[in-house]
Write a protein that binds this DNA or RNA. Sequence first.
RNA 1: GGCCGGUUCGUCUAUCGGCUAGGACAGCCCCCUUUCACGGGGCAAAGACGGGUUCGAUUCCCGUACCGGCUACCA
Length: 508
Amino acid sequence: MNKKVRVRFAPSPTGGLHLGGVRTVLFNYLFAKQQGGDFIVRIEDTDQTRFVEGAEAYIFNTLKWCGLHPDESPLHGGPFAPYRQSERKAAYRQYAEQLVNDGYAYYAFDTPEELEQMRINHKTAENPSPQYNHLLRAHMRNSLTLSNEEVKDLLAAGTPYVIRIKMPLDETVSFTDMIRGEVVFHTNQVDDKVLLKADGMPTYHLAVVVDDYTMQISHAFRGEEWLPSAPVHILLWKYLGWEKDMPLWAHLPLILKPDGNGKLSKRDGDRLGFPVFAMDWTDPKTGEKTIGFKERGFLPQAFINLLALLGWNDGTDNEIFTLEELVNKFSMDRVHKGGAKFDFEKAKWYNHEWIKRLSAKDLSSYVLPVLAEQNIVVNDEALLLRVIDLVKERCTLLPDFAQQAGFFFKEPVHFDTASLQPKWDEKKNLFFVELAMALELSKSWNAADLETTFKELAAVHQLKPGELMLPFRIMLVGGKFGPGVFDIADIIGRDATVARIKHVLSLL
RNA sequence: GGCCGGUUCGUCUAUCGGCUAGGACAGCCCCCUUUCACGGGGCAAAGACGGGUUCGAUUCCCGUACCGGCUACCA
């Protein structure tokens, strides 16, 4: 029997969503949609000390921008509500206690100070991070070392305690990862993770198992950093008696720093000058703002595309995929095992490709705001589309449209006369004076005729068109950029063309 | 330190035992273009190391090295 595919993305609302997070969402989404399954978003907010205002809303805004719509979530509702772990708090304790009763877990009364002391006492060169494990638990204050009476008294007195899993001795825990195959752990090496915290909240370890079970999750995909705690989760599935319902696991490779090594972090983006978060994120406490891919000028299509290809490919040379194509072609067994260093240059290339591919019409809603930044209001849509088609191949990021398209709608504020000055002379000046006159009188107005007029006049003045084109360009657009000059003149029209020539002439 | 994972051009990657090791980004050169792009062509660039298994290993196995992750009452 095949149970329905149900996957979940389970972020904790502690800040902006970064590349790796979005990719995890994406792989979940692609898998779910391909299998005709459900994509669930569950908020893992069991650590109340790390709660960050606005982070949850940010996550949903990001998903919306990416076009990855959840089937169930705290925002969208669903049959397994609530989807916030903080709102499911009451459910976890009974399972933790059931585990204690069944001998799979125990109460631990050690205070944070005692734990710290233990770590200091047992820390050696060979063992820099002592764990609360099968050896050390014998020396700590817990229901394994204390008598039943003592435990009862402590509990009755309201002494703070946590519930820890009791890792079995000399056992082997293994599972088959969809990406990595068989992974084996030895229980002696795993510590007694806290399941239920002193504040009554579950830790991730308990919550993820309980919720994945209750929400009937069929496949659980998460970052590779979770691999070491997998044995705890596997054992919990077993101890809770749910083994046959355990989801299939896949641990996704990490996204690494472009230089050096290590996991990509927000800091790396700041340091190297590229976004790491999907969208702008402002920390409500510090007011610190971190730029996102969206605001940096990426198209969601490109963002999704580049993320998908970071660790996955379809086996062909194709690198450009729509979301729909990804849904069709994605497969977990083609996901890489190794981590990938993030390359911002390649990321930009994806965006450039998507700008070139999208129609002017599709691009216009992204270009309009860029132009509005420069106080340009476009009310001629046909003109806008024509301009976009003319310049889009020159735009890598959306803000590039400001320079490439702005001068079609507004006279440049700055003219690069410095590039003209050195080679400027009276002959050229005269040419442009006459060009302005000729253009004012010309009967037709199109790129081809403009070019003819221009070249004929150059011949009359015994000047090479080549040395006049750049000046002309600078007069029309302000600098050494933009599409063909005659196309520009054609579009901006007679009045603007003549006015800009005269204006720059007056500057020289 | 221990445990787990990983290792093909600078980077992302193809290869499911036959390879003259392919593609893409970045780099360099040429053509197109009297801006910049786009487009076209080309150059340079890789299997961490050592053992096996095999007619044959980048591909399978083992070891070593290196890189990464984890090692919290954080996720």
